[in-house]
């Protein structure tokens, strides 16, 4: 889904200023680099890949409450490696970070967790599948049937997820190119979870149901030096079609990529330039102007839609800040999904 985890390397205690992405795009120090033609091996590939620098398990869900209101949740576990191996104990070079968000039409809640690898406080196992940090978890016998939990100090959720359809591989069979220079990552998704469960809000509980989307991605050097941020869409249309589309904003021009997924789960990757993104309206969020209404067009699928934030203030005020929230889709196709924007 996104490359924000890069920031994770810049741990706040060390007070490093984020000098664009240049410092990180420069060297990979013994880490593996994604190669085209990789053959995925499941369930092992659901687990961590310590020889790659960054990796994430990224789940978002659009939910409808029994009260008829729209909600969105985000559950993310990032792995960031300081060195390309793992070892037990405190000196494991693997670090973990969890982000959880819950967006209602009028409020946005978020929480963040940090942990060291090697001691059991956070990690991922492939079979049975479990990704956890502190008491947050996403687990099940297989990745097709999961229970999901996260808590902040004033919110939380307990959900169950059931996969409805196959895994989808982006780019060239999961080899997803991120820039014209060829930076790439391994990237696959489970875009079709049916979700049900309970949201814990400060003043009430809400029973909800809806659909969820899991992104899995790992890499060592996914951004080009000139790239400053991105806009990322994962949309589910009423027709049953789905779209993953992103734009990496670079000094030498944008780089776009998209995957069109049909109701039966078959997918088609669309090359750079196939999809276009136009901000229609910005909102003042966390003292900056963030586009919260977009026009997205994909001529190859006769797609011309307006994507509008359900709650313009869905700002993740975590160590590395970004916008992430549920969106409503109208125009040639109707539906809903999730939008992530960084670098504003």
């Amino acid at each position: 889904m996104s490359v924000k985890a890069l920031f994770f390397l810049l741990l706040a205690p060390f007070a490093v200023s984020a000098q664009g992405f240049a410092g990180l795009g420069s060297s990979v120090e013994g880490f593996d680099i994604p190669q085209p033609g990789y053959r995925f091996d499941f369930p092992a590939d659901h687990g961590p890949h310590p020889s790659f620098r960054i990796e994430w398990w990224y789940l978002t869900a659009n939910l409808t409450g029994e009260d008829g209101r729209e909600y969105g949740i985000q559950w993310t576990l990032f792995r960031s490696a300081l060195r390309p191996f793992d070892q037990p104990g405190w000196q494991s070079p693997q670090l973990w970070m969890g982000h959880a968000g819950l967006t209602t039409p009028d409020t946005h809640f978020f929480a963040e967790r940090l942990a060291r690898g090697g001691i059991g406080q956070a990690g991922v196992t492939a079979a049975p599948f479990e990704a956890w940090i502190d008491e947050w978890h996403m687990r099940g016998d297989t990745i097709d049937a999961l229970s999901l939990r996260a808590n902040g100090d004033d919110f939380g959720y307990d959900l169950t997820l059931t996969a409805d359809g196959p895994l989808v591989f982006h780019g060239d069979n999961g080899y997803s190119v991120k820039s014209a220079e060829g930076q790439a990552s391994y990237y696959y998704s489970q875009p079709g979870y049916r979700v049900s469960g309970m949201l814990h809000l400060p003043d009430r509980k809400v029973t909800v149901s809806g659909e969820g989307w899991l992104d899995r991605e790992w890499s060592s050097q996914p951004l080009a030096a000139d790239q400053s941020g991105w806009d990322w869409f994962s949309l589910t249309f009423d027709s049953g079609d789905k779209l993953m589309a992103f734009r990496l904003r670079g000094g030498r021009g944008d780089y776009t990529s998209a995957t069109w997924i049909t109701p039966d789960g078959s997918s088609r990757s669309l090359p750079d330039g196939s999809v276009s993104f136009t901000p229609l309206q910005t909102s003042r969020v966390a003292a900056r102007n963030v586009p919260t209404e977009w026009q997205v067009t994909l001529p190859a699928e006769d797609l011309d839609i307006r994507v509008e934030a359900q709650n313009a203030q869905a700002w993740m005020g975590t160590r590395f800040e970004y916008w992430e929230g549920p969106v409503t889709v109208s125009g040639s196709h109707a539906g809903r999904g999730y939008l992530e924007m960084t670098g504003y």
Binding site: L9, P13, F14, L82, L95, R116
Partner: peptide, 30 residues
């Protein structure tokens, strides 16, 4: 302290004012 989660770390820099690389602080020999 667990330098990743400790709540009140001072700003640790070397004499030139540069923060140290997390990788060398968190992994052996530290």
């Amino acid at each position: 302290v667990d330098m990743v989660t400790y709540p009140a770390l001072p700003a640790l820099t070397d004499t030139q004012g540069n923060p140290p690389d997390p990788a060398i602080v968190l992994t052996a020999p530290g």
